[in-house]
Design a protein around this nucleic acid. Structure first.
Lengths: 247, 247
DNA sequence: GAGTGGTCTAGACCACATC
DNA sequence: ATGTGGTCTAGACCACTCG
């Protein structure tokens, strides 16, 4: 008869209170010393109980302030729609489609770097060849939720607005289309993994238990030329992904 | 100057050894007491270092035996292909496509249950109406990696092979097609979350730090009738997902 | 039985946020 | 200054696995 550990008992009890609504979203949990007293356990056990809930994405902690019940609204990311030609063909930014949230981008940085092996292979250039990279961070409702880095073949995009921090109406796909490289199809690869330390900082993830979606998207022209590689790292607790396809 | 905690130093060092190949896949890590002595920290700190690596999916622990470096081969799950009509139209099982691994299913259980709200809404029946469920577990290379439960409208499939444990050549989609309900398009919704306790057991996930993909797939006929809801729970450390779509 | 992982305590100390 | 989270120790005890 494997008796359930104390930290689990505490976590289970708090989880029940959260799900039942007794502890509504945004409300503050009892402090760690208080939890310890309430349940008759040591502070360390109370800490680990909260750590467990944090790993489950139910609770969010602010240093020196307290732990709070998180809201559950996941951001939809509906793939075929957001990349449809109708979108970027007419000046709309991709993220305008992901409804009901206040978007903004930050820390846009464009640079030239040698291509890592996987990027080079996808883009069809030599490993170490110079490629253009566009990095940026997406912030939704004041919460950093996504990092993205796009890679382009330098000769293809040199001197266009893709190399500016503002790519202009319709974004980079509209610019690629103007160059005769309109994306026709996409391939996305999704893995879930723990964040790297720098990603954990940029996305304000908890030190333990945070997870990210790592999505790699390749954009191909109708001639099957790969014209963009986009590496995205999303806070997995903030998003759901939706895909459509036919039989 | 935020000095890095000890358990992190230990974890970082082990992680480096793993990535560098000094600790190859399958090899055993030093025991917790030994780690503590080596790094001059308490056993508890050594434990938490290993706990961190486990949360990152790098290490796997067997009770009373030791901790071991995990392998990295992810199972591909390529969605449009595996559900193409050509597949189930001609007697092939879906998983035959996911190459290079030894598949088998286990614990197939068919039953009739009252429909939960979300299922009922998707299938277009009353909440609580009786639906057919098909649960099963997928095992790859002797490792349980996926749970799946499909839901069907009872009146639609009663008396067909869908209600048997073996659905016959081409599987349930072939049977639906024979009934005039051939799936024409699919919608998949992906979230990453911590496993429920029962899922953690069925998938043999670590008690802390394990993550699952929860994928909900709806199958629609060409008349936009939803004929199947499929809930899948995948060990997120075992899979990568791939999707194709057009602009 | 000996070695392994897993849980727990009491108390200590640090870092951070708020007043 | 006080209260919050976060890390650490030394030692204890339990459960599991293997020989």
């Amino acid at each position: 008869m494997p008796r359930t550990p104390q930290y689990r008992r505490v976590a289970d009890d708090l989880r029940t209170q959260i799900r039942s609504g007794a502890l509504p979203a945004g409300s503050q949990l009892p402090s760690i010393p208080n939890l310890g007293k309430q349940y008759g356990v040591s502070d360390d056990v109370a800490y680990r109980a909260i750590e467990t809930l944090r790993a489950e994405g139910l609770v969010e902690t602010r240093q020196g302030t307290g732990s709070f019940v998180r809201g559950f609204t996941l951001i939809p990311r509906v793939s075929p729609n957001r990349l449809s030609k109708a979108q970027w063909g007419s000046g709309k930014a991709i993220q305008d489609l992901d409804t009901g949230h206040r978007w903004r981008t930050a820390d846009v940085v464009v640079s030239e770097t040698p291509a890592p092996a996987d990027i080079a292979e996808a883009l069809g250039v030599e490993e170490g060849a110079t490629v253009i990279t566009r990095g940026r961070r997406y912030i939704v409702d004041d919460r950093p939720v996504q990092l993205a880095t796009s890679f382009y073949v330098r000769e293809m995009v040199r001197g266009t607005a893709i190399t500016y921090t503002d790519t202009g109406p319709g974004g980079s796909y509209a610019r690629l289309a103007e160059l005769g490289y309109a994306p026709a199809r996409f391939e996305e690869t999704v893995v879930a993994r723990a964040p790297h330390p720098d990603e954990a900082i940029s996305l304000a993830l908890p030190k333990v238990g945070g997870m990210v979606f790592h999505i790699t998207r390749l954009a191909f022209t109708k001639n099957d030329r790969c014209v963009e590689v986009n590496h995205m790292v999303l806070d997995a607790a903030a998003y759901f992904l939706r895909y459509h396809f036919t039989a």
